[in-house]
Design a protein around this nucleic acid. Structure first.
Lengths: 207, 207
DNA sequence: ACCAGTCAGTGATAAAGTCACACAGGCGTA
DNA sequence: TACGCCTGTGTGACTTTATCACTGACTGGT
């Protein structure tokens, strides 16, 4: 259970070394893994749960940049770990999470000694860059109503979701009023039903 | 002159090995280093010149994601190199550029053998992630007139710049008409003078 | 001088962001 | 129970940005 696949392929001796110095840290939903400005304590390997990474602009508005799930690596931390700069984003635990915090020294050792570790890190970086590039494209050129419907469709499985309009606005990087109006429009069309802090999907939603 | 600082700090023997297998490639202004969909041939180390990386959305609109200058590394390529996926963006040479193309095998060897090379790669990745995060914030929350003025101010030193409204629109990820209108507004205020393919700044621009 | 291609300007309209405010639901306390 | 308080939602008015459609201006080649 408490296990991360980037450690799986390590040679046995190195893995022993790594695992012996790592304790899983537990974070409850809502906890902040790190805030903007915090120095980096180590490279978080997510074992379980989900964590969202969001940033707040000078305007005070926020936007979710990406999320991490089980087996993910918080690649963003590596840069901060190397340069000593503070984070520019914050990470919020969405579902109770277990995390290995890999300190700088161990990270350096693993990078030196394991080709598979290096590969895992490089792949993670690549994915993150890709995510961000796609996000830029989406924010710059896609229509908000489409983005909203797309976001909802990806989560409509359960029949309903618990989220406020404000939180949804941060997901999409827009204003609360815009979300309220677009949702109201969808309700008028009969695709969902709204109540305080909750969105219920009607059968016709995905269709 | 033809030199990249990530290779400087390599141990002498490794550096010999690397330099002996690398030929600088020359690209003229306007040349495409890679296009969306292209497979990755190697990791480009930029020795000289500047290269901009931009992507085109499904809508057909484009936006410049970041630029690379002398001593920069095209970190985006690493992910493609690892996974074998094609690029999702394209790289266009802005000022005549010289580039070392580091093939997969050499890259792996350098990552294995040199801590300073690893550090350089990690730092480059960190910077790129940061750039993209800031870009997301800018695109999502900043006003277009401010962004345009900011872009112009950063280049107003020469007194005039040669660029079309369409190219400027790609820089900012907006439509050509929007740029035309905002520029016209600035001209009315006396901050610059417009002519075909050129923008001249008046003394009052930066003030 | 003419033509084709590129570049720039602009009106009309739609989409999205901002500001201001009203009201509703839920919760604790007098 | 009644009152206030906080959070969440709805909406009008207005500004900014995006999109569509079209016009005309500049440039280089024949």
């Amino acid at each position: 259970m408490l296990h991360h696949s980037i450690l799986d392929t390590l040679p046995a001796d190195i893995r022993e070394d790594a695992l012996s110095s790592l304790q899983p840290l537990q974070f409850e939903q809502g906890k902040i893994l790190f805030r903007a400005g915090d120095p980096c304590q180590g490279l978080p390997l997510v074992l379980k749960g989900t964590v969202k990474v969001q940033m707040t602009g000078l305007s005070g508005n926020s936007i979710v940049l990406y999320r991490m799930g089980a087996d993910d690596i918080c690649t963003l931390s590596i840069g901060c770990l190397m340069t000593g700069d503070g984070f520019r984003a914050e990470a919020v635990v969405e579902d109770d999470a277990d995390v290995f915090m890999v300190p700088r020294g161990l990270f350096d050792r693993l990078m030196e000694q394991s080709a598979s570790f290096r590969l895992g890190i490089m792949e993670s970086y690549g994915r993150r860059l890709n995510d961000l590039m796609l996000l830029v494209e989406e924010v710059a050129f896609r229509r908000m109503d489409e983005r909203l419907v797309h976001w909802l469709e990806a989560r409509a499985g359960q029949g309903e979701i618990t989220i406020t309009h404000q939180e949804l606005a941060v997901e999409l990087g827009t204003a609360r009023e815009v979300v309220s109006r677009l949702l109201k429009e969808l309700e008028r069309k009969g695709r969902l039903r709204l109540s305080r802090g909750k969105i219920e999907f009607t059968g016709s939603f995905t269709g």
